[in-house]
């Protein structure tokens, strides 16, 4: 574990080199709230020596000129290039996280990348593809607080060689109501202070557990693809989903399926072929946790 002093010094100068599963980032910033939150989230991660190959060089900077003082902003940079519009300064740390997603989704074409949460027990991973607002992050947070390994709440990173899925252990992004749901259900969960008025509403980042971080380099096989659907007052259950339909919905949730073309077609086919495919309709998190536990035990 890196000390706060060393971390603070490095992030302001040469940057900190963090390994996140198959990707490495060099992160630089002098913005105090971003440094604070980055330290809390990444202090237990693997830090790389200065002589290691780093995939992405990113930084958060405050624009010069008038916006430094009046309605202060923050900008995200990928190796000197700023791909997004500036955001208000309090959103500095979430912006860093979104920026990291952007780097992976835009430059990680040596993996098939799907917009999905991924959790695992042992070396059996479950993919939860779902668009925004489907409740997947809440479900993911609940599972991760109940003995499941977090791979990611946003990005399934799938090898084009053997269809295994890689972790990229970072905070889980909780939005709006789910913040309170998780806080009350799991009082030991470590949540960062909420940030308001983002484009996604109120956002709070939940830190991954230490176990997930420690196993941050261990890939797994996808044993099930589950499409979660939150509905009021239903009794949670798995409904078998057609594989051909699963395939189509899986690639519709992909960031770069169309870029990689036939290679990704083959890998997506392999995954769907060998995984159990379900829809999971639920209203109760406790039942959901039990159901998911039995899903992997079945195998």
């Amino acid at each position: 574990m890196i000390s706060k002093e060393v971390f603070n010094k490095r992030i302001k100068t040469d940057g900190v080199n963090i390994e996140l599963g198959p990707f490495s980032f060099n992160i630089k910033t002098t913005i105090p709230n971003a440094i604070e939150e980055a330290y809390i989230n990444y202090k237990d991660h693997e830090f790389l020596d200065a002589n290691k190959f780093i995939d992405f060089h990113i930084s958060l900077e405050r624009p010069k000129g008038i916006r430094r003082w009046i309605k202060p902003n923050v900008e995200f940079y990928f190796d000197g290039h700023s791909p997004f519009k500036p955001l208000p300064l309090p959103q500095a740390y979430p912006m860093l996280e979104w920026g990291m997603n952007w780097c992976i989704a835009n430059y990680g074409h040596y993996f098939l990348i799907i917009h999905a949460a991924v959790v695992a027990k042992g070396n059996k991973a479950i993919l939860l593809p779902a668009p925004q607002g489907s409740g997947k992050s809440t479900l993911c947070a609940a599972l991760v607080n109940s003995g499941w390994r977090l791979f990611s709440d946003e990005l399934a990173i799938i090898s084009l060689k053997d269809a295994s899925v890689f972790p990229c252990v970072r905070p889980v992004s909780l939005k709006n109501e789910s913040i309170n749901i998780i806080k009350s259900r799991f009082p030991d969960a470590r949540l960062m202070p909420s940030v308001h008025d983002t484009t996604k509403g109120t956002v709070s980042l939940m830190m991954p557990g230490l176990e997930s971080v420690k196993q941050g380099n261990c890939p797994a096989k996808i044993s099930a693809i589950v499409f979660p659907k939150y509905q009021l007052e239903v009794n949670g259950k798995f409904e078998v989903k057609d594989k051909s339909q699963t395939f189509i919905e899986l690639i519709q949730n992909s960031f770069n399926y169309h870029v990689i073309s036939n290679q990704s077609f083959n890998i997506a086919g392999d995954i769907v072929e060998s995984a159990y495919c379900y829809e999971y309709i639920y209203s109760d998190l406790t039942k959901a946790i039990l159901d998911f536990d039995s899903l992997v035990d079945l195998d």
Partner: peptide, 13 residues
Amino acid sequence: KQHLEAALIFSKK
């Protein structure tokens, strides 16, 4: 090599 291959995949597409 991963980065080079990713670039080739992208430009081909």
